[in-house]
Design a protein around this nucleic acid. Structure first.
Length: 477
RNA sequence: GCGGAGUUGGCAGAGUCGAUAUGCAGCGGUCUGCAAAACCGUGAACAGGAGUUCAAAUCUCCUACUCCGCUCCA
């Protein structure tokens, strides 16, 4: 049984989907006005892993993650760079896709974009207005939070404590009440716009996600997720719109990931202390970054220091080694005689089963990847031990271990590409070395050994050709 | 001010009433022609104070400190 902590109830709850074996999940994605940084990566990796785990547990996960491409900051950046918002969005979007791929993040089922959904959003705001939850004011449209009695329930705040006087937004004279939030923003000079019943303007950020989640997943969804900073006001405002309009619940489980801190401060765009993913990946592998993030439970804060990510790199490399060694042996064709299982074989098989169960147990408890990794590391010790101590490596035992490593890798999103590890460059060096050694044998007229090397290589798909001047080699098959 | 999370060994980080978390780094050992790797063992922690309990890192209260949200932000 999977348990999930929901921000709304502030406790662990049994995970039950609306439809059997299907998860409807909306994750609030980034605003594409800059490069992907470690904070985005934390959120994306945490939820990517949870998604992968749910898939492992047999769910079909319909995972929607938006890209916000029209927003105050988008316009700001566009003006700074003297380009259109669309151009800015296109460029950073492509960078995001690139960085997400390099972190081995699975693409969402759909990545919707606000700009492409302007008409249904306008209709959505109109409906809110018709039902009396929204009011127009000088071309803006605001949500009247006092009309929604449960406002504040997600962030656990009383309406009178929200938005104190003196904050920028509370002073907005178009609002009836300081906490009211914009559904539609009237165009200012130089801004992009869409026509609407209230004049030229654009959609407010908080409406985008409600509308798009409804469009792609339906009115009630299983999971809605994002960073902890989105609890208020963003998700609070989503609930207000969705539930006011529809008169029924919007989301069953609210998931929020913790932040990454640098020097005891949160990493954020506004503080300018963020670490870009492109730059980080120049020094550390994507696997190390994923491991660094997943070693900590997704709701806890992470302190970023060079030391800690260095440690993660070492750990990641060690883990990779044992998985690679296992794969090397699992790929070999060995006699499969299960009646000849040694004590060590049997023990390894037992440990494999136990590790799988322990891992599932850890992950079932609100996706506790810390405990999950503890299981993975213990198991990797056992396998390392087996690989060195077993008299004969039994194919059924090592293949089970390899299979479990594959499961771990696919859930945690680690070491996806073994082929790139065995690069042609390395193969080339290896072949040249063998040719050199064979040359020594030929000098000694040790034809038995030199022929063996040539024959065995040929069988492995590497053909050697002895020509007068040099030895040519090529890969066959 | 209001709301929330937290303070665990050298570092990171789980655990939440009774077991050895785990990783990195130490230290010792095993293996070993050399090198490397690996495995095993080991030391070391529960912010401070009071209370509840047979038993508390784990529950309650108090104190101190940290972080987050209340403003665009993952």
């Amino acid at each position: 049984m999977i348990k999930i902590y929901s921000t709304l109830t502030r406790q662990l709850e049994e995970f039950k989907t609306i439809e059997p074996n299907v998860v409807k999940w909306y994750n609030c994605g980034p605003t594409v006005n800059g490069l992907m940084h470690l904070g985005h990566a934390r959120s994306a990796i945490a939820f990517d892993t949870i998604r992968r785990y749910l898939e492992y547990r047999g769910y079909k996960v319909n995972y929607i993650m938006n890209f916000t491409d029209i927003e105050d900051r988008m316009i700001e950046v566009a003006n700074q760079e003297k380009r259109s918002v669309l151009e800015v969005a296109e460029e950073y979007l492509s960078y995001f896709r690139r960085d997400m791929a390099s972190l081995n993040l699975k693409p969402a089922t759909v990545h919707p974009r606000a700009m492409l959904h302007m008409n249904p959003m306008i209709e959505f705001v109109q409906e809110l207005e018709e039902k009396g939850y929204a009011y127009e004011s000088n071309g803006d449209v605001y949500f009247d939070v006092r009309k929604f009695k449960e406002y504040g329930k997600l962030s656990n705040q009383k309406i009178e404590n929200i938005l104190q006087e003196g904050t920028e937004d509370a002073k907005n004279p178009n609002k009836k009440f300081p906490a009211d939030f914009a559904l539609w923003k009237a165009m200012k000079p130089g801004e992009p716009y869409w026509p609407s019943p209230w004049g030229k303007g654009r959609i407010g950020w908080h409406s985008e996600c409600v509308l798009m989640s409804g469009l792609y997943l339906g009115e009630l969804i299983d999971i809605h997720s994002g960073g902890q900073d989105l609890i208020f006001p963003h998700h609070e405002n989503e609930i207000a719109q969705a539930e006011a309009l529809r008169g029924k619940p919007f989301v069953n489980y609210w998931l929020h990931n913790g932040f990454i801190n640098i020097d005891k401060e949160k990493m954020s765009k506004s503080l300018g202390n963020f670490v870009n993913i492109v730059e980080l990946l120049e020094h550390y592998s994507a696997d190390a970054v994923r491991l660094f993030i997943l070693q900590t439970h997704y709701r806890s804060p992470i302190m970023f220091t060079d030391d800690v990510i260095d440690q993660a790199q070492v750990t990641s490399d060690r883990l990779f080694d044992v998985i690679l060694l296992t794969k090397n042996y699992a790929d070999e064709i060995m006699e499969k005689d299960e009646s000849k299982l040694s004590e060590l074989d049997k023990k390894l098989i037992e440990k494999t089963e136990k590790a799988r169960n322990d891992f599932i147990e850890a992950m079932d408890e609100d996706f506790n990847t810390s405990n999950g990794f503890a299981v993975v590391f213990k198991f990797s010790n056992d396998v390392n031990d087996y690989l060195r101590k077993a008299e004969n490596i039994n194919s059924s035992a090592i293949k089970e271990a390899d299979k479990l490593f594959d499961e771990f890798r696919s859930i945690l999103g680690l070491y996806e590409d073994f082929n790139s590890y065995l690069s042609l460059d390395k193969v080339e060096k290896l072949i040249k070395l063998l040719i050199e050694i064979r040359g020594e044998y030929r000098k000694e007229k040790n034809w038995e050994m030199s022929d063996k090397i040539r024959d065995d290589l040929k069988e492995a798909g590497i053909a050697l050709e002895d020509t007068p001047k040099r030895i040519l080699w090529k890969l066959t098959e």
